[in-house]
Nucleic acid binder design. Structure first.
Lengths: 213, 213
DNA sequence: TAGATTGTTAATCGATTAACAATC
DNA sequence: TAGATTGTTAATCGATTAACAATC
């Protein structure tokens, strides 16, 4: 009998918890001390019921009538999302999108530590971009053998996505954030997060054309 | 009695139809003539049942035993997704991400025609980037009064997202693709597609940390 | 206290999966 | 024909919403 449930939170709930945290940080910056599930719901664009449902995954700290302390709830959500340690990550592809991501890492604080980038373009290889060393892709296995990475970020031409993914997995990388439109074939146990920019463009074009909304 | 249902396709199904089309185009490039729902399912990473369910939204052209003609199904999906006309779109923010998107538009064929960009950085204003004119944001209303845009793409600092959105809506833009982490407050009838890069990073960090997958 | 809000359970809704008759 | 696959309906599953007792 397992007394403690593993309590794996599903991706949608994780996404909303991330949004609640942003909203809470905004409230904090405005020196607002207390808030209610209804307020968070409006700011996050969901229902109050869903906010409370989601917060059941968090060590809750609300009180009837008084709602939540903004500071306490922020801490509770952050603890739940586990931002203690920064995980080492590598970037595959240092073209315009890859460089935009490097820029993003400088200005924001993702819970990832981007340690290096890999490219095929020889003009970029063996230089630094935004303080990150850029290696030739042929050095990938050699590199990972020395310094394992927990996360790989794909920002390369879609034709290369599957091949590189296979190599990453063979080298022990288990989590891949894929910005290419390629659907990756991977074995069980590999987590893939898709951020499909091309799909976003195609989908907004579809609804704009339909005028359905 | 309405005889023809409007048949608005939900965003998830639209997303999968877009994926099926890519998969079909790949098959076409490999000179494969016929395919089955099971094949498409494997390549798209979904179940065969879901493929057939989704294809019910498309003028179906499959035959039992023989499956689908790759060419015919591609055409049917494309017709369903409605790629006839390119819709005029504008870009808000021409920083690293905005420039990566401009680059993307050059190399791919989204169903959008990116006609201009808006910036506050005076070094970029009144120049061209990737063949697109860059105007100062203060010219936004003036511009839209002359040349209406069906879609606006937000790639600017998150602090500006809500203000610019309000101005876009006031100027008649009804479809917004939002690359910032800001949740936008908009009136009914406005369609927003979120592509939250920061969330992608935070979520993969969460699952990589958990090791849940 | 009375009123309002939380945490949590039950009900509903929608999306995915399973099943199967039709059929090539 | 026999076998396999489609299109479509029914069943299941999961996620969201509603309801409500507990309570500050």
């Amino acid at each position: 009998m397992v007394s403690q449930a593993p309590k794996v939170i599903n991706p949608r709930t994780v996404g909303r918890l991330i949004i609640y945290r942003r909203v809470l940080e905004k409230l904090q910056s405005e020196n607002i001390e207390r808030t209610f599930s209804r307020d968070l719901a409006v700011l996050a664009g969901v229902s109050a019921s869903l906010v409370r449902q989601d917060l059941m995954n968090v060590a809750t700290c609300g009180t009837p009538q008084n709602g939540y302390s903004v500071v306490e709830l922020t801490q509770a959500v952050t603890k739940c999302l586990g931002t203690t340690k920064k995980l080492p990550a590598i970037l595959l592809g240092a073209g315009p999108l890859g460089q935009a991501l490097l820029h993003h890492f400088q200005n924001n604080q993702p819970q990832l530590d981007l340690v290096s980038a890999f490219e095929t373009n020889l003009e970029l290889v063996d230089h630094e971009l935004h303080g990150i060393p850029v290696f030739h892709v042929s050095k990938l296995e050699e590199y990972l053998a020395q310094t394992p990475a927990q996360v790989a970020i794909l920002a390369l031409p879609k034709e290369l996505a599957q091949t590189i993914t296979d190599r990453l997995i063979a080298a022990g990388v288990c989590n891949i954030l894929n910005f290419t439109p390629t659907r990756l074939q991977v074995p069980a146990g590999i987590f893939i997060e898709y951020n499909d920019i091309q799909m976003s463009l195609e989908r907004i074009a579809f609804y704009a054309d339909e005028g359905a909304y």
